[in-house]
Amino acid sequence: MRILVLGGTAFLSAEIARQAVAAGHDVTCFARGTSANPPDGATWVRGERTLGAAAYAQVAHGWDAVVDVSRDPVQARDALEALGAVTEHWTFVSSCSVYADHSLPGADESAALLESLPEGQAGSPETYGESKSAIEHMTLGLVGEKAHIVRSGLIGGPGDGTDRYGYWPARFAANTGTVLVPDIPAAATQIIDVRDLASWILRSAERRLVGTYNALGDVVRFGDYITESRRIAGALEDEVVLPSEDWLVAQGVDYWAGPDSLPLWLPPGHDGFQARSNRAARDAGMTLRPWQETLSATLEDERMRGLDRERKAGLSRGTEQRLVALWREMQR
């Protein structure tokens, strides 16, 4: 197949391009390339999506499949208008952040969505869900009969730049003897390996699969994830300090992601955020490797990148030590 990846230089889009090349497809990546180059074997067309529909002049010819991971509705519409008519199959990688309610575990693709960002308004980090919702709406409106909408959840595995899924195995692997963990053993985690997601997107394009699907991993209890992180890191003898959620909030620790956060810990009302149904995608051919394999590969990648590097998510070592001391003092 002749495949155009709008991107192809970062994490998921790069993995899609890499797997497509390995499968023998003719792959073109349309990207600026400011942070990385496309995978070897792919044709690189340098392009700047902020220039509008005219930016696609070099690639505005027949494609068997286009894959777009955009989060900006303006740029997504430009691509759809420039390439939709000359493409046989269109994949848009959306997000489960499009859903309006994250409280109900097991919800499927029929759940209500956030209101779309107004027409012509550019996306921002603060309007991520609304932006993805808007792109879904315009994709279905412009190329709906050939559209595959992929609502991904948290993506993990080697190369993850968000530092969320890898925080815990890397933290235990640092061998400091004490690790602060939120006391939420029964909470749900739901991560899909980037390699599995890319594989399903590619195989779906080969099959011309259309429709909207939650592309998610299976649910794993946070306690099981922590236990396995300790095991593969060789840290089963380390002390685990388990402060309450209320105490962590009172100390200014953030949920989920970002500096001074505890990754994968969610605020109240988000019981379904990492516990949505992936049955439809499973029935449509999505396959998942064991989550323990993803975790091991993630730790290997973390070791290569440096266990003590500055991270985008998680507690700094100094902050963690301060919190451990405070919690112990309170327990006396």
Rank of each mutant, 00 (worst) to 15 (best):
A325C: 00
F172C: 11
A79M: 08
W265H: 09
S103Y: 05
V74T: 13
I201W: 09
T212Q: 13
R305A: 11
V27D: 01
V69F: 14
D283S: 13
G318T: 14
D271R: 12
R231W: 04
G7F: 05
K132D: 13
M330F: 05
Y255I: 05
C96T: 15
G159V: 06
Q292V: 12
W291T: 08
V240G: 09
G269Q: 06
A250N: 13
W44D: 05
P243Q: 05
L12R: 06
A36Y: 04
S204P: 07
T298V: 13
G144D: 06
S13E: 06
R221Q: 08
Q331A: 15
D163F: 01
V220Y: 01
A170N: 07
E88Y: 00
A215L: 13
M286E: 09
A215Q: 07
Q75V: 08
L140M: 14
D108F: 09
L295C: 05
D183I: 06
C96V: 15
T28P: 03
V98G: 05
V210M: 10
S296W: 07
H89T: 10
E237P: 02
G123P: 11
P290R: 04
F11N: 10
A235P: 11
A280L: 15
A313G: 13
A107K: 08
K146A: 04
E136R: 05
Q58P: 11
G156T: 07
S70P: 03
Q251F: 08
F92E: 05
T91K: 00
P73M: 07
D271Y: 00
M304K: 14
G7N: 03
L242E: 08
V181G: 03
N37W: 05
G161M: 10
T294V: 10
V219K: 03
H89L: 04
N37T: 15
D101A: 05
E126N: 12
R49E: 04
S103P: 06
L295V: 12
S70G: 12
S70K: 00
V45F: 06
L154K: 01
A82C: 09
P118G: 05
L113G: 01
M1I: 07
Q75R: 12
A313H: 00
D26K: 07
G106N: 11
E310N: 05
V93Q: 00
W168T: 06
W265I: 02
D308V: 07
D224G: 00
S133L: 07
V66G: 05
V86W: 03
E206F: 04
P169L: 09
L315A: 09
V324T: 11
D40R: 09
D183E: 13
I201H: 04
T43V: 14
E293L: 12
E302M: 14
L80E: 07
D193Q: 01
Q251V: 11
S35C: 02
S133P: 08
L288P: 02
E109K: 07
R77S: 04
I184C: 03
A188R: 02
E109Y: 02
C96H: 00
T162E: 13
Q75G: 13
Y167M: 03
Y165N: 02
R171W: 06
G285K: 08
E320C: 06
S124F: 04
Q331G: 01
L12I: 15
R77W: 02
Y225N: 00
A107Q: 15
L154A: 11
T162Y: 02
L236M: 14
G8A: 09
